[in-house]
Amino acid sequence: MQFTLNGREVDVAAHPMRRLLDVLREDCELTGTKEGCGEGECGACTVLIDGQAVVSCLVPFAQVDGRDVRTIEGADAQALQRAFMDHVGAQCGICTPGMIMAAMSLGPDPTRKQMQEALAGNLCRCTGYEAIYRAIGEAKRANRRTPLGVESIG
């Protein structure tokens, strides 16, 4: 199967009905994408296919033929990642890669409601989501001075 993975053309030989999640984790050795439930409920395995957030546990590998796949390892998400760090948006961290992939679709200065809707398919059992909203709010602040968010952490 030929597709674009994190910006690079790749050719991966795997059964077309295997879960994209397993092909990414096992054949491509990209273990940043996590499995929490295997039934599309928790969102820990969220990746982007052609820019759309999808749960990779429900995607047969055949469906990525010729498509553009992004995982946390290749995501252009430094501002989000930094803000998750600064605002303790990650506690145990198992939902974090999926949460960040799902948050990438949000525009600048998202409202609480927009964040709730964008992340409705991503379960977090640690944070109660408040710190995640604080992190995304910071990362998506329209007038951020620097894309890498070097504001002091304290």
Binding site: L30, T31, G32, T33, T71, I72, E73, L80, Q81, R82, F84, M85, D86, V88, G89, A90, C92, G93, T96, P97, I100, I153, G154
Partner: peptide, 14 residues
């Protein structure tokens, strides 16, 4: 102080 958590970046980057 809310210093940077030791495991923050590892978790945010996968």
């Amino acid at each position: 102080r809310s210093v940077a958590r030791k495991d923050g970046m590892g978790k945010a980057t996968g």
